[in-house]
Design a protein around this nucleic acid. Sequence first.
RNA 1: GCCGGCUUAGCUCAGUGGUAGAGCUCCCGAUUUGUAAUCGGAUGGUCGUCAGUUCAAGUCUGACAGUCGGCUCCA
Length: 633
Amino acid sequence: MLRGFYQRAILKNKIMASNDEQNQLQILRHSAAHVLAAAVLRLFPDAKYDIGPATENGFFYDFDLPRSLTEKDLTAIEAEMQSIIAANEPFERMEVSRATARQKMQALHQSYKCERLDAIPEGEVISLYKTGDFLDLCHGPHVKSTGCIKAFKLLSIAGCYYRGDETRQQLQRIYGTAFASQQDLDQYLQRMEQAKERDHRKLGVKLNLFLIDSLVGQGLILWTPKGTILRKQLQSFLEEELDKQGYDQVITPHIGKLDLFKVSGHYPYYKDSQFHPIWDRECIERAVDQAQSLDEIKERVRDKMDIDGFLLKPMNCPMHVRLYASQKRSYRELPLRLAEFGTVYRWEQSGELGGLTRVRGFTQDDAHIFCREDQVAGELKGCLKLINIIFTTLGMSDYRVRISLRDPASDKYIGDSALWEKSEQALRDAAKQLDKPSTEAIGEAAFYGPKLDFIVRDVLGREWQLGTIQIDYNLPYRFKINYVGSDNQPHVPIMIHRAPFGSMERFCGLLIEHFGGDFPLWLAPEQVRLLPIKDTCIAYADEVYALLKQAKIRCSVDDRAETLNSKIRSAESDKIPYVCIVGEKEQSAHSVSIRSRCQPHSNGTYPIEQLITLLRNEIDQRLLPEAFKGKKA
RNA sequence: GCCGGCUUAGCUCAGUGGUAGAGCUCCCGAUUUGUAAUCGGAUGGUCGUCAGUUCAAGUCUGACAGUCGGCUCCA
């Protein structure tokens, strides 16, 4: 099965085929990929080429080359491409038999192409495309000739596995992009540059929100005082909603006995994605005493099975299940909704870590709903409502919903088939509430149940899963939990896992990019900065500060011996929502002069009391900044 | 984990195998300013770490770490 980037590229192609202009661009880009391959072959006659599809914003082509490419090679390849384009060679299509295609590709020693040929189903038309000396197995279509490619640029080199399979040959992938005109290309490149300025990793440093410290460890986030305010505001917001929806909050530890995770099945099944367990001292001693050789000890460490100890929790659910199981439950008290901002730890591969979006320790806004079968649909609706409130409040409308279903052909799923169908339908029905296009993804379900995933893009266009709602048939059975029904008989409850933010870290990362650092007032770490015009006004500024502080507004006084212009510049660059200038005029009128982020040039003067009312209203209603109004989901 | 790039002051970055640099920040003076950068001074470095080549390494080589772009993975 195709995975990752290529799979997304194919999907995108299918979606975009409906749009003619986009379709033309796709053809142009795919043709540019052919030119790229032709150029690489001129420079590396021994190169083997694999595939070169168009992607959402460009194209790539995969090669097996005698040496590693560097950025410098791209210039040479681009020059070669230019010469092919200048020659204006036509793209010639030839429909051939499978045998002919095979013979031609074998003659060129193109083993990857031969394997790709084998993968084409019987009965499909097989076509070759020829441009100059370059021959490619390709379904097409293409532009008329290489001269049609007016504007392109090679962007980067990356390693990739043949057919996305990490056990196979690693190839070199060259990424590039092409547009109908140089102007479009320049615009795109400029947009990308601007996007980098919004990158949460860059803004995180600039606005001093969080820190990743190599001495602390990769993928482990240190939240600064400012970042902590942001995160805690989000948490309080969610806590208010949880309270409205009848959740109970709980707190559970960061580690638990290995036995707990053996019962849940997380250990050792997912042991490669977990931090190494903390072995009991006696267990280590026993292992050493009993082992005949060092190899045997090594084996034990590797297997990690026959040991006792503790595990940094990779998930919160087992602990919540134990809370459920601690009492005899009646059908009358269901649904029981246990929520926790629970920090979990997972051993992500080092190459995958980055910023706040992929980390090794993160806090889920987790909750587990234990309910009866007849309550599932209602509970799902509640979850969706929560997610809708969150996205609407934050003005995030650019997300997609994936309904992750089981693959009926696979036997990896547990649970009753009728129950699956019922749940899958319940998820579909619930998803309709969101008024968002949703896609069904067969085979994306967890082995223990179907789920709804909420997926957003970062500034660089990469997709990330945020919230998730999952139905679980597994854990209630593994932990043998039940409730007493109206028939006085024990019944197994159904469990719903749900996390609207997903991970606080990832969510904050995407939120920083979403707002470009210009947070709504209620989230801004520093809401107001008071700028006294000269030293003699500092006392008045302090007076205003005390009043704002009393109204629980986060503010500061910039009392540096700097010019007003300099202080304004600092405040703007720190993205302070409201800058209040206080001088003699303001002091005598007991007012401030407001310079707001959204309207920097309307210098309204407001009495202090009015300012406080204004700000409190904006905070309490969690209003979006002006720039985001009308963008509500 | 795999392929490749990058790592110089708190930040952004210069630096031809031959004495370690700039701007901003921070600190100290002076300036008291009305809506996006006042002036001057001082501090700040094991050039990611450890080896190697060389008379000489920030610069060349290797290993490791971190980071970036992908790939793989993501309960």
